[in-house]
């Protein structure tokens, strides 16, 4: 074991450029995936918050009673994609409107011009199902109009989907490249030491003694790459967030920046597992090929 690790470390230096290139590839792979993951996690949190702000408003036919509207409220609340339904009376609607758009002129009106504008304001748990909800609401009797922000919901939802695919695609292709490079590094190492391996075999070395160092080497490349990526992402993403929050405070109102600690709880084990996995696989394949011959 100590032999394998010691020789593995020596192998890292013996292979020089090869080792450096595969190490950098693993680092870059994990770094990009890490950044994408961070953005995705923040976006997810942002979408979550945005979902609370995106509302569907239902207006009813003039003359409907308040009790009737409250009955509808109960029906709508029963639907699973709905988070909350708020009843907005005509008076409240007018006050809101007046404050927002008319300011002091609001006092000039004697009668409420929005007398028939009692409404239900719905917030959703899952904004991607806004269309279903709207269709359901429009079929209800007594409903005059449904106001929804279908466009915003769709845009937010698809941005998340696109980023998820981007993460999966980038991660996968970069993993394959990393794997290939570790594989080449270990293969080159075995080829360079072919004569030594041959001699050690005749001296009675076991396969473990001969090939252990190559596993250690692959594992070290994977783990070192993961550690380097860990620091890069922590430093870079952490710094960027801090900078954005300080320089553009308005951004924090639109975007949610998750604390790095929460992101690392997922990313840390992921990096570690990926580093080990790709290191072991990258050395297992060439060693296996070598053993079969």
């Amino acid at each position: 074991m100590r032999h394998a690790i010691g020789q593995g470390i020596r192998g890292l230096f013996r292979n020089g450029w090869y080792t450096l290139v595969s190490l950098l590839t693993v680092t870059i792979c994990l770094f990009l995936s890490g950044i994408l993951f961070t953005v995705l996690a923040d976006l997810g949190a942002t979408l979550d918050r945005a979902a609370r702000d995106v509302t569907v408003t239902v207006f009813f036919e003039p003359g409907i009673t308040e009790e009737k509207i409250l009955d509808y409220r109960a029906v709508i609340l029963d639907r699973e994609e709905v988070r909350d339904v708020v009843y907005v009376s005509a008076r409240e609607a007018w006050e809101d409107f007046g404050q927002e758009y008319l300011g002091e002129y609001a006092a000039d009106f004697d009668e409420n011009p929005l007398a028939d504008s009692a409404s239900l304001r719905i917030t959703m748990k899952d904004i991607s199902r806004q269309k279903d909800l709207t269709a359901f609401l429009e079929k209800l009797p007594d409903v005059r109009k449904v106001n929804s922000s279908a466009g915003a919901a769709r845009a937010l939802g698809s941005a998340g989907t696109v980023l998820t695919y981007a993460l999966a695609g980038t991660g996968l292709s970069l993993s394959l490249i990393s794997l290939f490079l570790i594989y080449s590094t270990i293969s080159a190492g075995i080829a360079a030491r072919q004569k030594e391996i041959e001699i050690m075999k005749y001296l009675g070395a076991t396969d473990g003694y001969i090939y252990g160092p190559f596993f250690a080497e692959g594992l070290l490349i994977g783990l070192t790459g993961a550690c380097a990526a860990f620091f890069l992402v922590t430093i870079l993403a952490g710094r960027t967030m801090l900078y954005l929050e300080e320089s553009f405070p308005v951004l924090t109102e639109v975007f949610v920046f998750l604390p790095m600690g929460r992101i690392w709880r997922t990313l840390g084990p992921g990096f570690f597992g990926f580093g080990c996995g790709i290191g072991l696989l990258g050395s297992l394949l060439p060693v296996g090929r070598h053993l079969r011959v």
Partner: peptide
């Protein structure tokens, strides 16, 4: 095979 070779001494024609 490894265990067997530990009990053998081999001197090759080309030294190795």
């Amino acid at each position: 095979i490894a265990l067997l070779r530990r009990r053998m001494g081999i001197v090759f024609q080309d030294f190795r």
